[in-house]
Design a protein around this nucleic acid. Structure first.
Lengths: 192, 192
DNA sequence: CCAAATAAATGACCACGGTCAATATTGGAG
DNA sequence: CTCCAATATTGACCGTGGTCATTTATTTGG
């Protein structure tokens, strides 16, 4: 049997990713064009789709990498023990995911997965986010009448709500972090 | 000045909507093609875009109408006074919005609005949903330490979370309504 | 009733993501 | 080294959403 994967493959894939990343840095995610990526990488269009199922698969990789870096930051810091500290610790992640409307939409669309077999990079960051917050819930001074896991799911739900409202014309008044704090105070510290 | 809008316009628009609705009934939202709509309505492609900004604008109208009908139902029923009753009252809306993955994605994307001037039909149903639930919060046996408005925002956030997880490979085990009930018990009746 | 003015409709055209049969390259077996 | 099967690449082609200069229909002022 021939070698399963040629090193040529790896080079091509790396070049595609590199060019894509550079283009995103210049013009943002929404403006990225497959055509430009293959042009920059010096390959044909078909080659792109031999390496990535579709354009979104590339987006998932690029966005997932950025989000993972933010979670690395959050994990490196101290364990937050208040709502303010939680909001602060998650700030890089939230800033990254809401940097572009397009990015937020993609992230939401791939926050789950179509099938067990193909959980993508973005879904993995959501899972990581959840686990991280779950840990914080167990150690911090938060309500104990429900499980840390449930609390963490709620934090995620409220973060998405607050992020959505950031893009919403009906609710421009309040800033994202202030809104999230109000949510989390009510969710994590009821009756106080 | 010439008459602002000719009755021909209304007829054409009505025909486009009628055909689109019929096609959706047959094949669902995702499979809808602008080409088929204009073919069925007997007009040129350009005419479609003279009546709707883009394909999504048509989708918003169709989906918004369906969601509005569900809210009519919810409004017509008794005011729910328990978590179970709330989940039951909102069931038609939730069923409708999650009938197709594509529909849910479109709904989320247009749940806000790009600019104050152009709040669309779907954003309006989100606002209606919020107001409706807000009313229930004020009259029901739920926590009083935070405002009904905040409670309603939370209900919306948890509903979206539960709907998202329905489409997520990581969480297929629990059914949507059971999950939502767990969320709302913890959100609306903490410590009980 | 005609002509100018305004609104609506047309369809050829473009942009861009994605496909696939044909071709080229690779690397291990003999 | 040579051959060949597996693998990678190619680029013409397609589907579909969206555009716009031109043509056609309607309304209004005289």
């Amino acid at each position: 049997m021939a070698k399963a994967v040629q090193q040529r493959t790896l080079k091509t894939r790396a070049r595609l990713l590199e060019v894509a990343q550079a283009l995103v840095k210049q013009g943002g995610y929404e403006a990225l064009r497959v055509e430009e990526v293959v042009l920059g990488a010096g390959v044909a269009k078909g080659t792109f789709f031999a390496h990535f199922r579709d354009k979104d698969a590339l987006m998932e990789i690029l966005i997932g990498a950025e989000l993972d870096a933010c979670l690395d930051q959050a994990e490196a810091g101290e364990t937050p023990d208040s709502v303010d500290a939680i909001v602060a610790a998650l700030a890089p992640y939230h800033r990254c995911i809401s940097a572009e409307r397009y990015v937020f939409d993609v992230a939401l669309r791939y926050s789950g997965a179509a099938a067990i077999a193909e959980i993508g990079p973005i879904a993995r960051t959501f899972e990581r986010y959840f686990r991280l917050v779950e840990g914080w819930m167990a150690s911090g001074p938060f309500r104990r009448d429900v499980s840390p896991a449930l609390l963490a799911e709620g934090v995620q739900a409220f973060a998405i709500q607050a992020l959505s409202l950031q893009f919403c014309a009906l609710h421009e008044a309040t800033a994202f972090e202030d809104r999230l704090k109000v949510y989390l105070d009510a969710w994590l510290l009821p009756g106080s």
